[in-house]
Amino acid sequence: MKVMIRKTATGHSAYVAKKDLEELIVEMENPALWGGKVTLANGWQLELPAMAADTPLPITVEARKL
């Protein structure tokens, strides 16, 4: 699914347009965010693609819901 990742004042957030859902990312498998699992505030887990740590945000990526 397409997910937009952006930086907020409190960390990172994910927006899933198909579900009209925006949630804070509360847990990251990798400190650089990319190439691992993230957990959203509502409990969803997404697998993000591997990208460079300095990838500019906001960005829309293809993520997989676990």
Rank of each mutant, 00 (worst) to 15 (best):
M1L: 14
M1W: 13
M1Y: 11
K2V: 14
K2G: 07
K2H: 11
K2T: 14
V3T: 03
V3S: 00
M4T: 15
R6G: 06
K7T: 06
T8F: 06
T8H: 10
A9N: 10
G11P: 00
H12G: 02
H12D: 04
A14N: 02
A14C: 11
Y15A: 07
V16A: 05
A17R: 08
K18G: 15
K18C: 15
K19N: 15
K19R: 13
K19Q: 15
K19P: 10
D20H: 12
D20I: 07
D20A: 11
L21V: 13
E22Q: 08
E22R: 07
E22Y: 11
E23Y: 15
E23K: 04
E23T: 13
E23G: 05
L24Q: 13
L24Y: 09
V26Y: 04
V26I: 14
M28Q: 13
M28K: 11
E29I: 04
E29T: 09
E29R: 05
N30D: 07
P31M: 08
P31Y: 08
A32M: 14
A32H: 14
A32Q: 14
L33E: 03
W34Y: 02
G36W: 05
G36E: 04
G36I: 06
K37F: 12
K37L: 12
K37V: 14
K37A: 08
V38N: 00
V38L: 02
V38D: 00
T39I: 11
T39A: 04
T39V: 12
L40M: 05
L40I: 02
L40N: 02
L40V: 00
L40S: 02
A41I: 04
G43N: 03
G43M: 02
G43R: 02
W44A: 03
W44L: 07
W44S: 01
W44F: 05
Q45I: 15
L46V: 06
E47S: 10
E47H: 09
E47A: 11
E47V: 13
L48Q: 00
P49C: 06
P49K: 02
P49N: 01
A50W: 15
A50G: 07
M51C: 05
A52P: 15
A53D: 12
D54H: 08
D54G: 10
D54M: 07
P56Q: 11
P58M: 05
P58T: 04
P58Y: 05
I59P: 00
T60F: 11
E62F: 15
E62L: 14
E62A: 09
R64E: 07
R64G: 06
R64L: 12
L66D: 05
